[in-house]
Simulated scan of single mutants.
Amino acid sequence: MLTWQVWAVLAAVFAALTAIFAKLGVAGIPSEYATFVRTIVVVALLGVIVTVSGQWRSPAVLGGRGITFLVLSGLATGASWICYFRALQLGDVARVAPIDKLSVVLVAVFGVTFLGEHLSLPNWLGVALIAAGAMLVAYRA
């Protein structure tokens, strides 16, 4: 089994590829429709993975709290994707993606604020550098 760090790096690689492929894919297509097509592909792929790996379960086993937060997460994901694809249509991928990654900064703030997580001074410095870096990459001189 791979470590969380390996999975996180793989997620970053696939997120980068997502940005490039999406920028190419939204050319001449309404961003909401492009998001819809992407979502169908994601649902189909995950359906195959869940079925082949034997993870298929009734949603009833999740319980009310689990379902509620997964639905909210799904709504947030959909909103994020719609906004992201619209931004890709309007802007350069090299500038849109770093702004999108400001979610890393927001996750740190939300994790501390709402989940009671703790970050050390070096962690906060890293968060500040991510924010500054995203803004510098997005800056058009």
Score class of each variant (00 low, 15 high):
F14E: 08
A94W: 05
L102P: 07
A134Y: 02
G47E: 00
V41T: 11
A11M: 14
S80D: 14
I29Q: 14
G111E: 09
L10I: 14
P59N: 02
L45G: 08
W124S: 06
L136V: 10
T113M: 11
A11D: 15
I20N: 04
L88A: 01
E32G: 03
L90V: 07
T3E: 08
L125E: 05
A15I: 05
T68A: 14
V43H: 08
L10V: 15
S73E: 09
A34F: 09
L115T: 09
W81P: 03
T77G: 13
A138D: 03
L125I: 15
A94P: 03
A108L: 06
L106Y: 14
W7F: 13
T35G: 07
G116I: 01
R86A: 13
V96Q: 08
L75A: 09
S103Y: 15
V41N: 02
I130V: 15
R65G: 06
T18D: 15
A44L: 14
T3I: 00
W56H: 02
A27E: 15
Q55W: 03
I49H: 00
S53Q: 10
V42M: 09
L72M: 08
V127P: 13
G91F: 10
G133E: 06
V13I: 15
L2F: 11
G63T: 03
P122A: 00
R65D: 05
A60W: 05
L24G: 11
L102T: 14
